[in-house]
Nucleic acid binder design. Sequence first.
DNA 1: AATTTGACAGCGA
DNA 2: GTCGCTGCCAAAT
Length: 106
Amino acid sequence: MKKHSCGFNESIYRIALRIPRGKVATYGQLAAMSGNPRAARAVGAAMQNAPEYMEIPCHRVVSSTGKLAPQYAFGGEDKQRALLASEGVVFKENGTIDLKKSLWRP
DNA sequence: AATTTGACAGCGA
DNA sequence: GTCGCTGCCAAAT
């Protein structure tokens, strides 16, 4: 046994991996599931630190407003949008995610 | 050990 | 309906 990263991050990764394909979860939602409904920002930080070998679908994690991550996060919102759409996520005309239909429901 | 940053969320004008 | 500011948490430097 050894100390991996901090427990908080671990919880976030664990939940993020539970997000089914075709659905998306908000940072605040992951935060609430990990036990800190106010740690939405910490979730974002955790995602940024998320090791690639974990294969975390961070592209399925979006803001509560249905807005996607900034350009520097995935190489372009357009890219993330196409990827999510490819998985079955429903988007609105304005390019934001339709959380009404694609929000992950545990 | 302390300070600053950050891929947010919620409320108000 | 759009735009901006504040508040919260944890990690990294």
